[in-house]
Structure formats: C-alpha cells, structure tokens
C-alpha cells in the first residue's frame, strides 16, 4: 500500500506544477481570459474542485497557512475532504479556519466576509468557466467573441430576462467584465460577493479542472457586473418584507453578512444564519468578549 510520503510535496509532479504556474502568470497578465491548461487527473472526480485544488497545490509551500471553505463553511464535506488531502500531501503546512490568519484560501462558491489583504491569495473552484456558453455552443466561436470583447448576445439574454421578469434573474455566476475587456463567470458566488471582485487588494484565481481553464482577477482591477445604464446591479438585501428591517443571523445577530435560509424543523418557519461560518463564530466571540 502506498502512503502519502510516496508522493512529492503537493502531490503534483514538478512538470505539472510548472505548467500550472506558467498558466497562472499568463492568466494574471491577461485579466479575465480563460487560459487553457492540461488539467491533471486527481484522486477525486472532476467537478469536485480539482481545478482549485491544482492551483492550490501549485502555489502552496512550506509554512503556508491554508483555509479551505465550501459555501462559506469550513466544515462541509467538500472543504473537509480537500483540506484533508492537502494536509496529507503537504506535511509542513498549517491550516486554519480564521480568514485573517490564512495566506492561501481555497473556496467553493463564496468569498469570505472579512476583507482580504494584499498578502492573501484566494483560489475559487469553478464548474463552468465560460459565461458565453448559454448563448453560443461552439467554443471556437466563443473564443473569437471573447477576443473581440463581443458580449452583445449575453446582453440580449439579460434584456430578455428584464422583458419576461422585470429583473435580471441570475442569482449566482453573475457575468462580470474584468478590466474593461473579458467577461468572466466568477464561479457560483452569490451576487452579494460580486462587488468584492472590484479593486480587491488580494489576487483572485479561478480554476476549472473539468473544463481545463484557469483565469484571474488581479488585485486593484476593474470588475463590473454586466448591466444596463438604466437598470443598476442589485445584490441580495435580506430585507424582511413585513417588518421592513434587514434580517439578522440567528446565531450571531449580524445584520451585514450574507445569510443562508433554513426552515426550522420545530416551527416550520424560516430561520437565517450567516453563510460564512468563520465570520459568524468570530462575531459571537467578539460579543462574548465585550
């Protein structure tokens, strides 16, 4: 039976890492462009975060402090499995759940509530990297459209939404234009997180393992959600229609975080809770400290 020590640090061999590293640098140099790379087989199914994992393993080094989150939580199954795998193959790293302690953060579908810093890198797992796929099935033609920054058909799609529903109905994966040229699929983050892409102090990397693409939003870069001049971009506001107040997290009482909705098994009513479990815990710790 083979053990973890049979593998090189970071599981990937140095050729795989070098290729990912060259790809990442091109991705930063061409903000928002989906750089193709030869996504390696990982010991888990494609679609389970292999793109993000390959980025993390190519970036990570001894003494790194890593945080892995899935949908805001450090303890859900995808995060636990990926963290365990990285700990197994990178013996000299530290892991944390606290956003401010991490130097490298791999995340599925959320950007942490706490603002990121210049010395942190966020890696997002991406299922569908190309925002044009809903309007153009041919990748060859999509690449031409991206090169020419031709997103008219995507705007038509948004317009159709407005005609049908009086609202752009995209709840997550909101198409966002980076540095005035490429439009990206920012991974299935909620609309609430889209403004965090804009002028972020930290580097944001996106890895799509199954689709074999890597792209980046460099720090301090324009990131504008696709909208029309007369229909401003809206994020989730969590206002209670009855009381008119913004809903609070039932655990920590925070009124300025992204909330998950649950149904209370006893009363059948709806309850709300911070999606970012680390933020929620830290808010509670602060409240107890006072």
């Amino acid at each position: 039976m083979s053990t973890a020590t049979d593998y090189p640090f970071g599981f990937l061999d140095s050729y795989a890492k070098k290729e990912v590293r060259r790809t990442v640098l091109k991705a930063i140099a061409i903000p928002g462009y989906q750089v193709p790379y030869s996504s390696r087989e990982m010991p888990m199914g494609r679609g389970f975060g292999t793109g993000g994992l390959q980025l993390t393993l190519s970036l990570i080094g001894e003494g790194e402090t890593l945080k892995v989150i899935d949908q805001g939580s450090d303890d859900s199954v995808n995060a636990v499995n990926l963290r365990h795998f990285i700990e197994l193959t990178c013996p000299s790293i530290n892991t944390t759940t606290r956003t401010q302690e991490a130097t490298l953060i791999q995340s599925r579908h959320r950007i942490p509530e706490q603002p990121l810093r210049e010395d942190q890198v966020l890696v997002l797992q991406v299922p569908y990297p190309d925002p044009l796929v809903i309007v153009e099935p041919s990748e060859t033609r999509r690449k031409v459209m991206h090169g020419e920054a031709d997103y008219s058909r995507l705007l038509v799609k948004l317009y159709e939404d407005l005609v049908h529903f009086k609202e752009i109905t995209i709840s997550h994966r909101y198409p966002t234009r980076i540095n005035g040229h490429y439009v990206i699929d920012p991974s299935p983050i909620p609309r609430y997180d889209v403004p965090k892409l804009h002028q972020s102090p930290a580097l944001l990397l996106f890895g799509a393992g199954r689709e074999k693409k890597v792209y980046a939003v460099p720090p301090y870069t324009l990131a504008e959600p696709l909208v029309f001049d007369d229909v401003p971009f809206r994020t989730e506001d969590f206002t209670d229609r009855v009381s008119g107040e913004r809903r609070a997290c039932q655990r920590c009482g925070s009124r300025d975080s992204f909330l998950d909705e649950f149904s209370d098994p006893n009363t059948g009513g709806k309850v709300y809770q911070c999606s970012d479990s680390d933020y929620c815990t830290q808010q509670q710790e602060q409240a107890h400290g006072e």
């Binding site: 090189p8 640090f9 140095s14 890492k17 590293r21 990442v24 640098l25 930063i28 140099a29 190519s58 970036l59 990570i60 080094g61 001894e62 890198v121 580097l203 460099p218 720090p219």
Partner: peptide, 16 residues
Amino acid sequence: TPLQQQVFRQLLDAYS
C-alpha cells in the same frame, strides 16, 4: 523544488 516554489510565489506577487 522548495526554493522554486518560493521564486514562483515571488513571480506571482510581481505579476499581481
């Protein structure tokens, strides 16, 4: 390889 990883992180920082 550990030093190359450090150089890469400096490259990453330089490009960012």
